[in-house]
Structure formats: structure tokens, C-alpha cells
Write a protein that binds this DNA or RNA. Structure first.
Lengths: 242, 242
DNA sequence: TACGATTATATGTCTAGACATATAAGTCAA
DNA sequence: TTGACTTATATGTCTAGACATATAATCGTA
């Protein structure tokens, strides 16, 4: 065995190599543009095979921390802090995670042929049936968010008969539609009469708006608008360098 | 050779395996909980070594599309669509990308000993000097966002002498501080007098607020608050399943 | 000087093995 | 039925090679 490791190496070797390099990048010891040691140098330094250091470097490349260029070497990338991971939790999960009591209330549910506005909102061209749902989520009996959702029955026929009086449509979809892609748009509005009443806030108070459009392999599933009281709700997006 | 491949396989084998599996997950053919074929089965199917299928599966696991469990196998994960990638672009880049003329205006700059409020905002305990900057970004001469920033001089001493009358502090920092981590908080407020004037909107109009807190290896770099007119600005977060 | 051909080299992918290890599943006893 | 023990097995990590390929550097030539 040519393992030069210290007695107790908790993580595996390739993870240690990965962590070593990541630390030097994150502390600024190796600034953007700096060339990482060549694979064969790392092989010598750690006394392992090339596949092992290659795995470490490949993962760093996949995480966008470094850039690998044939013949030239591997280089620390310039941070693109325009992208951050935004946590948009399932509302029930979010509220219970805060240790508060989750409440749900169905305000309205309609099954109808898609109107022009519906089709526009879902981004579909063909006419078809949709379910329109309005409901409210609360935390400790205080209104937390109101939800206005459209489900395309052509994509999710089962939703026609689902009982949304108990289960929020978001949770129902999460359990009945396998895997989706989504796009979120975040904006701010002031509460109109209807919103103010639903959220129990003053007319003209700020609201955070999340519009989510969900599809699976080019098929629309659902479009939803969530309204939060803007001064009490916050979205947190964390960027971690890797 | 038992390669079931079509004649021309452009990508490498492990990428094809990865793409094959990803497609089945994204189309719903393999729903959450479904067991992916064992490595030795994929080895037989693709006629390659285990390391090759292992690389494909490892990448899918790193992307959270599947979960690997020793002795049990690999399984399609339940989509956690609470996480999405939020693009928070450098404002100048964002505006020029829209094909509009970028404008920048320094409103105020102060170098001072950190007040209690400053220390609280930066999350530091020790007293020290800070630079406080207020500025405005515009697109086609229309106010786009106002920025209120604090830079910790203990971490970025160079910022004391930087010229922020031409270059926005965000761009300056991006080029002078190597690699950082950040946390963003998004909320909504209504414009007060000062904000309304700076953004040229009505008092009481909705504003989108982004608070960004940036650090490098436990050292605070900067804290910034960006205010956007809420009805004209939208943040887009896209979730891609992998 | 500029441009085209050649060469050296770092990464990209892959193999056919190996041993480690967590754990699902089966076995047996209390 | 329950708990403790054993076993089988799928993944996790690693090796010592191999050939492919893009490209930076060098060299030669117009």
C-alpha cells in the first residue's frame, strides 16, 4: 500500500483532495485564473493514481469552481455570483419547519373549459379543460399566503376528481406528478381590496408575488400565483461557491 | 461487443448512459422511487466496465436526480422543487443584456467608523472602518434600482481609495475580491418619500428588495440593499431537474 | 513577420480487475 | 413476536495501466 495518508483519514482520499483545493479557492489563496497543479503533480503529492485526482477535479469542475482546459491545465473560475440557489419550499413544509401550526382553506374551485386568459397563462394553444383553484395558507391561524392556481387537465386528468378541500393542490401535485421543471418569477405589488381581505392586511400594503410555471417534457402542468405579505415574508437564496 | 448503440454515438458512452436515464426520469417513465437498473445490469446492457456506468450514476446522484443506497440500489428521487436557481445578475450586465443603455450615478459615499447599526448589518462584532455607498442604476435614463451598500474595510482595505464615481461598487468588488459566498433575502416594501424620489415612482408604490450579504471564509465583505420598482422588475428563477 | 505544419502534453474517457463497507434480507434462538 | 447474529450484495473507492483528442508551443517556411 502506498497510502501516504495520516492514520485517521475520515473522508476518502478523493474527497480530501477536493476539499483541500476548494478551501484554497474559497480562502482566496488561489484567486481566479490561478492554475491548479496538474493531475500528475497531485498524483505525486497525494501518492495516488490519476483516476483519484481526476475524480476530485471533475467534481470541482461540475460545481463550476474550476475550469478544465485540455493541454493547458485546470484554472480557478471567476465567481459568477449572479446565480444563487433559491429555496422555495412547499408552503406546508415551510410553515411546519418554522414550528408553527399549518392551516389550509379552500376558497374556490372551478372546472371549466380554458378561456383565452387561461390558455395564455398556461402557455398552451389548444383549447381544453382546466381546474382553477383559489386557496389560503395560514400559520398559527394568521394568513400566510393566498394561492391562485390553474391546472391543465390535458396533462393531469386525475386532478379533475381530486379533493382539494383537505389537501393543498401544491402537495397533491407533488405526490401525483413525477418530475417537473419550473420557472419562477418574483415581483412586488401592493394589495388590492380582494388581496388585502384574504391576507388580512391593509389595502396598499406591499406583497411579494411568486408566479410559478411548471411543465414536464414540454407539457404544461400548472401555473400558480402565490401572494405573501411583503413585510413579513422573506425568500432566502444562498449562494455557495460549489 | 454487445453495444446496442446506433452507429454514430456523438457523446461519450458515460454521457449517453447519463442522458438515457435522465430522459426516462424527466418524462416520467421512471417515477420517483423507481429503482434504476443495478450497475451490473447497466454494464451488461451497454457492454462497458462498471467504472463507466458508475461515473454516469455518480453524476446523476450529484445532481440530486437519483439517490444511491448501498446494497439496495439507486432510486429516482422525489423532486424537491423547493430549490431553484435564481439569477441575480450584475445590474450593469442585466441592463446591457436587455439592450438598454446603462447609466450609473453615485449619490453618496462616506468613510466612517462602523456604527452599532453598521456592525449589526455586517454581522461583525469588532469596531472598524466601513465605506457606505448610495448609488443609482438606470436603464435608458429611467431609474432601474437604487443601491445602499456597506463595505467592511477590515476585509477589503483597498475599497477605501477606490473611485466609485465611475464604477459601481458591485462591479468593483467582483473584480477585486476573489471568491465569495453570499446570502440573499428577497422581500417587498412600499416606497417611502426618499425611495420614491430616487426611483421616480409614486410614494406607496411597491418595491422589490434584495438584501445581499457577502463573505469569504467567515469574513464579512459587504452588505447591500437593492431596491427595484416592484411592478417593472422581475426576478426569474429557473428550476431544471438536474 | 506571418502563417502553416508538427510536436508535446494535459485532460477525457475507458478497462478489468481489487478490496472496503453499509445494509437488506435471511436465520435462529429467546 | 422479537431481537441478535450471519450472510449476501450493491455501491464506494481505488489502481495501474491504455488510447483518444484538443490545443499550446515550437519550428520551419514563405
Amino acid at each position: 500500500m502506498s497510502l501516504t495518508a495520516d492514520a485517521a483519514d475520515q473522508p476518502t482520499l478523493y474527497k480530501r483532495i477536493r476539499a483541500d483545493i476548494e478551501k484554497r479557492i474559497l480562502t482566496g489563496e488561489w484567486p481566479p485564473g490561478h492554475r491548479i497543479p496538474f493531475e500528475h503533480e497531485l498524483v505525486a503529492r497525494y501518492g495516488c493514481s490519476r483516476m483519484t485526482v481526476n475524480k476530485a477535479l471533475s467534481e470541482l469542475a461540475q460545481a463550476d469552481l474550476i475550469e478544465r482546459r485540455r493541454r493547458a491545465g485546470s484554472f480557478v473560475r471567476r465567481p459568477q455570483h449572479q446565480s444563487a440557489v433559491l429555496k422555495i419550499a412547499d408552503i406546508r413544509a415551510e410553515i411546519t419547519a418554522l414550528g408553527r401550526a399549518y392551516g389550509y382553506e379552500l376558497i374556490g374551485r372551478k372546472l371549466r373549459a380554458a378561456t383565452a386568459a387561461d390558455r395564455d397563462r398556461l402557455g398552451v394553444k389548444k383549447a381544453g379543460k382546466v381546474v382553477a383553484i383559489t386557496c389560503r395558507h395560514s400559520a398559527d391561524n394568521v394568513p400566510f399566503a393566498v394561492e391562485d392556481r390553474l391546472i391543465d387537465l390535458a396533462s393531469v386528468p386525475h386532478a379533475a376528481t381530486a379533493d382539494f378541500s383537505r389537501e393543498p393542490p401544491g402537495s397533491w401535485l407533488l405526490h401525483h406528478v413525477p418530475w417537473t421543471e419550473a420557472e419562477h418569477t418574483i415581483s412586488a405589488i401592493v394589495a388590492d381590496d380582494r388581496t388585502a381581505e384574504a391576507l388580512d392586511i391593509a389595502v396598499g400594503a406591499p406583497c411579494l408575488v411568486i408566479d410559478r410555471y411548471t411543465w414536464r417534457s414540454a407539457r404544461t402542468i400548472t401555473a400558480v400565483r402565490l401572494l405573501y405579505p411583503g413585510d413579513s415574508h422573506r425568500l432566502v437564496a444562498r449562494f455557495k461557491g460549489g
